[in-house]
Design a protein around this nucleic acid. Structure first.
Lengths: 143, 143
DNA sequence: AAGCTTATTGAGATTGAATCTCAGTCTAAG
DNA sequence: CTTAGACTGAGATTCAATCTCAATAAGCTT
């Protein structure tokens, strides 16, 4: 695996007349190995530890490319800086966020997806992505 | 109107041993007069124009208080900095965001609310607020 | 494989939203 | 009216994110 996302990235770059450099390759490969959410500084730190020489600037420059290529997506957290997660090749899901312990629960509901489609149709809106974040207390914290 | 939100704010401040100052009062009164989304710098600029003398620092310090008091809520936009909107006394709603023209459509669905309650229950999660943002193209841009 | 055009990189400067500092001020309780 | 401690404003500071620009490398062309 991982082939699929790299292929998508390569094709995206090509379509934009952009180049697949060692740096961009190191970044996407690292992202594909990650589970859960991550942020740019974290990527930078980990890539440095890996021996890859990729500057902070390149990371910040590559992230929007990965987003536009549909490979990762920004997820909104409580935190002040941006967080991302891999989406291409993963099943879509939404998040519940525990405001006490910070736990993130991923969930998926077919009914929710269908309902949203219906709501969009009612507004004449062509939705192509969405983010649903429910804040509250997880089962452990709610006692 | 506007009484209701000011009362809630006063009670919130009291419960936290905080004080209702002229500055905080000017801020909440201005917020109550606003429609739609706003950001801190905008508030600062407008309050200055109003003749109210409220520093940028006080605005940034007051906003989290209004959020904690349940009077306003952060809304996530495409932009890099934080945006807010009045929620206390308004009906809850979610957003569709046109990625082409920036138009924001507010919508509400009872079914959506109920479905979310059910999903929370299934996870043992006690949800107490949520944000659903659908990105796509509005009817005008989708041609 | 060499040449060439143009995208890309990295280090450091820069921006800008948000936060912090601290001395002077004001609120609210007694 | 007094007092304790919350609050304010101006400016400094932080820090994520972006920009600059000279040096480098991708990848098409021959």
């Amino acid at each position: 695996m991982a082939k699929k996302q790299k292929k998508a990235f390569r094709e995206f770059l090509e379509s934009q007349n952009l180049r697949l450099t060692r740096e961009r390759e190191a970044i996407i490969e690292h992202v594909l190995r990650k589970h859960g959410h991550f942020d740019p500084e974290e990527l930078h730190f980990e890539l440095k530890g890996n021996g890859a020489k990729v500057s902070r600037a390149s990371i910040y420059r590559t992230i929007p490319l990965l987003v536009n290529a549909g490979i990762i997506e920004k997820v909104e957290n409580t935190d002040k800086h941006a967080h991302y997660e891999l989406i291409l090749g993963r099943k879509h899901h939404d998040h519940m966020l525990c405001t006490r312990c910070g736990k993130v629960i991923e969930f998926y509901s077919e009914g929710l997806e269908r309902l949203q489609d219906r709501l969009c149709k009612a507004e004449g809106f062509k939705g192509n992505s969405h983010t649903l974040e429910i804040k509250g207390l997880c089962s452990r914290c709610n006692r």
